[in-house]
Design a protein around this nucleic acid. Structure first.
Lengths: 329, 329
DNA sequence: AGCGGGAATGTTAACGTTCCCCTACTGAAC
DNA sequence: GTTCAGTAGGGGAACGTTAACATTCCCGCT
């Protein structure tokens, strides 16, 4: 900036003002400054700016996995909502591990973000403390935590699955299995499984068809393997709810390989409304969690808090939508 | 740090050393300092550290889309390779738009990253200039640019598709179509299409079955739509190469909905070796671009450059692998 | 006792911005 | 002619850390 100031014949302070598009710089001066900057190949230094102004244009975000369309959609929504303000997303992934999340949160807070968005509502005590003391807006997503740290944008994974169980029961199906959600690490997955168990019990049905699919992320292949085990051990199963659409699609392919009709012999449902659920033949019954809306709502909330339009902690509920498709008709 | 220094009875400089795990701090002092820091709820300020030391622990990365398993794998590989060094990834996505890429690159360079990894080898002149003058290692990936800016980790998209065309020709198929790659914006997609055209001409075959799939990202649904158009207009087509596995799977589902055998009536191939290609029934012939290896190689290269083990610009070629599966047998 | 050397720690200034408080000038109102 | 408000711009210090250099201390050796 000192170099630019020299070339443009002004003080460094004026150069700074020109870049911040503050008022009190005349248009001619500003133009001269921006031209000089371009000529000199100057690139603004956000590091120094953030240090001096004690505020940053970062928003930190933690997600379990990069390679998951649902979370990617949430980040996409966030990114879109924050772009207008020139807020940049600092993304980290936890690999479905709350210990890794703790490390990651500390790393991210070192950058002094202006806000932090985390996936899920379960954290290590230390991570919780870090978030509480960070002095910035904290938003928990994809869950409805019992004791929120700050703001919440999410839904009850358990309640969403209950709706799916009720759907099958209305169709007269009673021997219903659940694939996945066995790993503690995936808290949303195990919440879905717990919701399945509770819903089955509420309907007075036997909960004897829980199939493990291993540690997250649960892929299509693991869904197929789990479905194979289910068919081998409990062939009289009528319907299968999978922890995600990916495993549901895997389960579907296993049926196709064995020549078992879906629907007909087995009804299958997933979770997440991934692209594949709509395109698969048969299309997959699923639950749309409005992943992108979670991101856009979180972004809007961040702007509201930063601008002082939002005072106390906000609770923005999402209502997942049951999508009945060919695989359960 | 001043507060911690007071509590621990040392100077701020010693506190700084304790956090940098430099040698010359006695173990007792270090323990006292870390304890004091924990008690005070101190979180290290990377912003100030980066400003003063004039180096950062950021690596900037641009990818076309968050929601693409191939690029997510590359980022995953990068992330894994850089984690040991505490290097954090600063991710931005360009939405397949080189103008957006230019804006993004400038934004990212403002953070003074230690290196930058970009997807693709085609950039706006200004973006190119920014990268050349950034004074940090630049790595172009997923492509083999004619005039690389710095380092390259990639492969020729055109050459990879040539291998696929040759595979079909060896099977005696001659009426081969290509779906996608019509949008300039997706440079890798259009390179694949150009490779298809060149390979067909080299084989002396007619290039009269190019089906547009619209602007990227090309989804499963668009693959299905394009396949529908192909079947309607040129039903005597024998084989279809799609710009990615997602569109290939979409094409497959369109055949299934119409009761047309794959393989048999139509052979189908994709690109990218996405999970779905292996799991689909029939499994999809595809090309494995070793997405994750691109990331791990780029990460290793960055460390080599930063440590002075790599002098000139490196060219690390990737050799994509043709995977013949059920959809083309 | 005196000296050399290495490990542990301290002091000062600086990284590139921006906050805060000023000054100079212009033009309009009285 | 004086006052006053408003606009454009400047000067100096400070954000929290660390590079560079300086100092202290302890130990072993002659």
């Amino acid at each position: 900036m000192i170099d630019i100031a020299r070339v443009a014949g002004v003080s460094p302070m004026t150069v700074s003002r020109a870049f911040k598009s503050e008022g009190s710089v005349s248009e001619t001066t500003r133009a001269a400054i921006l031209q000089a900057a371009e000529d000199l190949g100057y690139v603004f230094d956000s590091t120094a700016s953030n240090l001096r102004s004690q505020r940053s244009d970062f928003v930190a975000v933690t997600i379990p996995s990069l390679n998951n369309a649902n979370f990617a959609d949430t980040v996409g929504g966030l990114s879109e909502g924050l772009k207008a303000r020139q807020l940049q997303i600092l993304l980290g992934y936890t690999n479905y591990d709350i210990l890794e999340e703790e490390r990651l949160i500390e790393q991210l807070l070192r950058r002094r973000p202006g806000a932090i968005v985390v996936t899920g509502g379960r954290h290590t005590p230390r991570a919780r403390r870090l978030l509480e003391n960070a002095g910035i807006p904290v938003i928990e997503t994809w869950d409805l935590p019992e004791a929120p740290i700050g703001h919440v944008v999410g839904f009850s994974n358990a309640a969403a699955v209950r709706g799916m169980v009720d759907h099958f029961v209305r169709q007269g199906l009673t021997r219903i299995a659940f694939i996945g959600g066995d790993a503690d690490r995936d808290t949303r997955g195990s919440d879905r499984r717990a919701g399945f168990v509770a819903a089955m019990q509420a309907q007075g049905l036997a909960v004897d068809r829980l199939i493990a699919a291993g540690p997250p992320p649960i892929s299509m292949r693991e869904g197929a393997t789990a479905m194979g085990r289910l068919i081998d051990t409990m062939p009289d199963t009528q319907a299968v709810i999978c922890v995600s659409d990916l495993s549901a699609f895997g389960a579907l392919t296993e049926c196709q390989r064995r020549g078992l009709a879906v629907p007909g012999r087995y009804s299958i449902a997933g979770f997440g409304d991934y692209d594949i659920a709509a395109v698969a033949v048969p299309s997959l019954t699923t639950i749309n969690p409005f992943s992108r809306a979670i991101g856009t709502k979180a972004a809007a909330l961040i702007l509201d808090v930063l601008d002082g339009r939002q005072d106390g902690p906000a609770l923005l509920p999402i209502t997942p939508e049951l999508l009945i498709r060919e695989s359960s008709r």
